[in-house]
């Protein structure tokens, strides 16, 4: 049963937009009519410590947290957080990290979360338009252009 579930862990440091990124992924899966659960620990995250958030979707999801070693994708926004979260990834899982964007320029480091979602999106079967809708739905209008561009950069990197 759990084979039909997709498990994604997004990690980084407080202030990098980890939770925003996981909200966007959850929204895309929700819009596709799937069962979705998303979990995270907030609290002291605004003080720059480690933050991570789990998103799971499929026909039926129980636990809101991804069990260790079962993540299909680990998206890490800050290189220092790779080792901290590596245990989440399954042996055949895919690590998506900032170095993927090497050679591509983002307008602002602030949109690294959305850029890495672009890279993630290539591995998932959702239409690009669903991603754009979720991104614009979760961000203030003045941030739309920059983030849509970042998403495309990541998707084509």
């Amino acid at each position: 049963m759990s084979n039909s579930i997709r498990n994604i862990v997004i990690a980084g440091l407080g202030g990098q937009g980890v939770l925003k990124a996981s909200d966007i992924v959850a929204e895309v899966a929700f819009a596709a009519g799937l069962d979705v659960k998303k979990s995270e620990i907030h609290g002291m995250s605004q003080r720059g410590g480690s933050v991570s958030s789990d998103v799971r979707f499929g026909s039926k999801v129980f636990s809101p947290m991804v069990p260790d070693g079962e993540a299909d994708f680990l998206v890490v926004l800050d290189p220092t957080q790779i080792d901290v979260n590596r245990a989440a990834l399954k042996p055949t899982g895919v690590l998506i990290e900032p170095s993927i964007l090497a050679g591509h320029k983002l307008k602002s480091d602030k949109s690294i979360n959305v850029a890495l979602l672009g890279a993630l999106s290539r591995h998932l079967d959702f239409p690009e338009s669903a991603w754009i809708t979720a991104i614009t739905g979760h961000l203030a209008p003045r941030l739309h252009d920059m983030n849509v561009a970042a998403f495309q950069t990541g998707r084509n990197a």
């Binding site: 995250s45 003080r47 720059g48 410590g49 480690s50 260790d68 220092t80 080792d83 901290v84 979260n85």
Partner: peptide, 13 residues
């Protein structure tokens, strides 16, 4: 039980 790798603790801004 496996111990989680310690992350970066929060700090005063």
């Amino acid at each position: 039980e496996p111990k989680p790798v310690p992350g970066k603790p929060p700090e005063l801004c």
